[in-house]
Write a protein that binds this DNA or RNA. Structure first.
Length: 469
RNA sequence: GUUCCCUUCGUCUAGUGGCCUAGGACGCUGCCCUCUCACGGCGGAAACACGGGUUCGAGUCCCGUAGGGAGCACCA
């Protein structure tokens, strides 16, 4: 019987939840769900200068939108500072750590020399075995961890495989600053242990940290969790995604009109694969997800593919769900309040509308003709289409449609076909001007659907608006 | 600079020594469907970074080279 899986997502609250973080969270969540374990959220807010409550809120909100709610309470790293300090003291007592009185200038010089001589840049351990009695007075020391000097360290990473590094590369890292506060390296290890984390899943920018953390776990006599370092997401140009280079918060994706499930589907496919499967439900992802499907190389973010997946999800979404989801977009696009939105019409038109939109923003735009008040503004193409001949023809269409008493797609179809035959026009020559008059645009759902959703009165009035006798 | 990681169509990927004449998806593109736009259907162009090994046989294993990425803080 193995231990139940416990994973954690551990962002630092210095900004929004960006897309790479969202994917890491998704992988953590998926892995925990797959194994029936727990997925926890830890806010790494020990850098109080850069951490903000707003950022924490944005992260929680972003995860919530994606449906990645953590199990159990959120852990705030800053609340555990005393515990971290306590562990540092224990390390000091057991001889696994020591005080170092180096000044910053001394350290800078050390680095410079190392660089000049082509040696690894790091602390040289000059206080490691020095007698504390030699300590300069009036200097607050930092506490450093005694890393092994000989041999090498191997990590069996679930994604990267066996990774070995020479212990010469590991310098004695600081675990307690001169002001007595613990550093990140110490805090993560203590928190991961205290939270019972079994699998550390994070971006591979932390791969090198894993070696140092490995020894910290060992020095405390703690079990070392499994590591899984997943590759980072790059922008479309192959460069790393960063805040100033294309990295957006998940809220931006929400505002661009992507569905959370579609974004998740896209994200999990970015760097993980299950054969040729492209579109699958969250349930299937949980069932299939494992590290043997995770790709080591970094992936580029591709909006076009996201759009395609989103379009697929939209077409498969329930009409009432989309109708509700649309309100904020209609407000944002057209400044129309939720209360003024004719939801019944939206719902009725939704089957035809959702077929044609890849995002909620597009969907909102395509629904404008349902909401717009007469007389309609015509877009450029529609204006061009409604030349005088067409307007004259519309007058005759109006007469023909006025005769239709049963305003059903069937009778409308029959009436318009009869009309176009009588006029010796191809059906399209009738439908397009009609569409322009009805929608103000040259694209829309099927013309009979449009007539029906608009209703007899509104349809005839809109046509009348554009006729020329 | 140094350490570690990565490298299959433009992009995401399948591929775990013979099933590969390298498969799927997005995008691009030809045709069909058609009242527009989509959707859908049937086709097409398009990749194993390079060089050496190992092997009867290499996209798959090993070594180099090149390119890309990440780390190297009293940040997390």
């Amino acid at each position: 019987m193995t231990k139940p899986v416990v994973t954690r997502f551990a962002p630092s609250p210095t900004g929004f939840l960006h897309i790479g973080g969202a994917r890491t969270a998704l992988f953590c969540w998926l892995y925990a769900r797959h194994h029936g374990g727990q997925y926890l959220l830890r806010i790494e807010d020990t850098d109080r200068k850069r951490s903000t409550d707003e950022a924490t809120a944005a992260i929680v909100e972003g995860l919530d939108w994606l449906g990645l709610q953590p199990d159990g309470d959120i852990v705030y790293q800053s609340h555990n500072l005393d515990r971290h300090t306590e562990v540092a003291k224990a390390l000091l007592d057991s001889g696994n750590a020591y005080y170092c009185y180096c000044s910053k200038e001394e350290l800078a010089e050390m680095r410079e020399n190392a660089r000049a001589e082509g040696r690894p840049i790091g602390y040289d351990g000059r206080w490691r075995d020095r007698d504390p009695a030699e300590a300069p007075v009036g200097v607050d020391p930092v506490v450093r961890f005694k890393a092994p000097k000989e041999g090498s360290t191997t990590i069996h990473d679930l994604v990267q495989g066996e990774v070995t590094v020479s212990n010469k590369e590991l310098d004695d890292m600081i675990i307690l600053r001169a002001d007595g506060t613990p550093t990140y390296m110490l805090s993560v290890v203590v928190d991961d242990h205290d939270m019972g984390i079994t699998h550390i899943i994070r971006g591979d920018d932390h791969l090198n940290n894993a070696f140092r953390q490995y020894h910290l776990f060992g020095a405390m006599g703690w079990d070392v969790p499994e590591f899984a370092h997943i590759s980072l997401i790059h922008g479309a140009d192959g460069a790393k995604l960063s805040k100033r280079h294309g990295a957006l918060g998940v809220d931006a994706y929400r505002d661009m009109g992507y569905l959370p499930d579609a974004l998740k589907n896209y994200l999990v496919k970015l760097g993980w694969g299950h054969g040729d499967d492209e579109i699958f439900s969250t349930e299937q992802a949980i069932e299939w997800f494992d590290f043997d499907g995770v790709v080591k190389s970094p992936a580029r973010f591709d909006f076009t593919k996201l759009e395609h997946i989103n379009g697929t999800y939209m077409r498969e979404s329930a009409d009432d769900y989309l109708t509700e989801a649309l309100s904020p977009f209609i407000l944002a696009e057209f400044g129309i309040d939720e209360a003024e939105i004719p939801k019944d019409k939206l719902l009725a038109a939704m089957p035809g509308l959702k077929e044609r939109a890849k995002t909620l923003v597009e969907l909102a735009k395509s629904a404008l003709f349902l909401i717009a008040k007469r007389p309609l503004d015509l877009d450029e193409k529609a204006q061009k289409l409604l030349h005088s001949d067409a307007r004259e023809m519309l007058a005759r269409v109006l007469t023909a449609l006025d005769l239709v008493s049963d305003w059903s797609a069937e009778s409308l179809d029959a009436a318009l076909r009869t009309f176009s035959e009588a006029e010796q026009l191809k059906f399209g020559k009738v439908a397009q001007p009609l569409r322009a008059a009805l929608c103000g645009t040259t694209t829309s759902p099927g013309i009979f659907d449009v007539l029906q959703v608009l209703g007899r009165e509104e349809s005839l009035a809109r046509i009348a608006d554009q006729t020329m006798k």
